[in-house]
């Protein structure tokens, strides 16, 4: 091999760069988070259900919240009719956080895990931990 020194240095950089995730995670256990549902309000519920189904909420809640934000604030309509036909008052702090009063144990768990930093809290605050 010609210029072996330079080529090997280059290949070592290549190898380390592309295997970054493997050696960065070495010896660290990172189990997927389980958001907690043991708030007082949820405990009292007879039928434990969110405004939509669990799978839909897990995958699509951000799109729903964004849509509801537009509906409530831009069209002034604060009533959302869900797939079960129930009417829900659109309000992050008064509806969502009424049941999910544990933002740190619920919202933040998954958001931190997947590196998402939603801008909900640029305007809203967590009424249960008034940090204003």
């Amino acid at each position: 091999m010609y210029d072996a020194g330079k080529v090997i240095i280059g290949l070592v950089i290549f190898f380390c760069f592309f295997t970054f995730a493997f050696w960065y995670n070495m010896g660290k256990a990172a189990p997927a988070p389980k958001p907690k549902l043991d708030t007082p309000v949820i405990k009292k519920m007879v039928k434990k259900q969110c405004i939509e189904g669990t799978h839909f909420m897990r995958t699509t809640h951000m799109q729903l919240l964004n849509h509801l934000r537009d509906q409530a604030l831009r069209q002034g309509n604060r009533w959302y009719t869900n797939k079960r036909g129930e009417k829900v008052w659109i309000s992050l702090q008064n509806t969502c956080l009424k049941c999910h009063s544990n933002k740190k144990e619920f919202c933040d768990k998954c958001h931190n895990y997947v590196g998402v930093d939603p801008y909900c809290w640029d305007c809203h605050f967590d009424p249960n931990r008034s940090k204003l």
Binding site: A21, F22, Y24, N25, M26, K28, A29, A30, A32, P33, H55, R58, T59, T60, Q63, C110, Y113, V114, V116
Partner: peptide, 16 residues
């Protein structure tokens, strides 16, 4: 949409 938390669990499984 897929459940991104599960996707990360799969990806982390591969990486570890």
């Amino acid at each position: 949409r897929v459940d991104i938390v599960n996707v990360k669990a799969l990806a982390m499984g591969l990486a570890s």
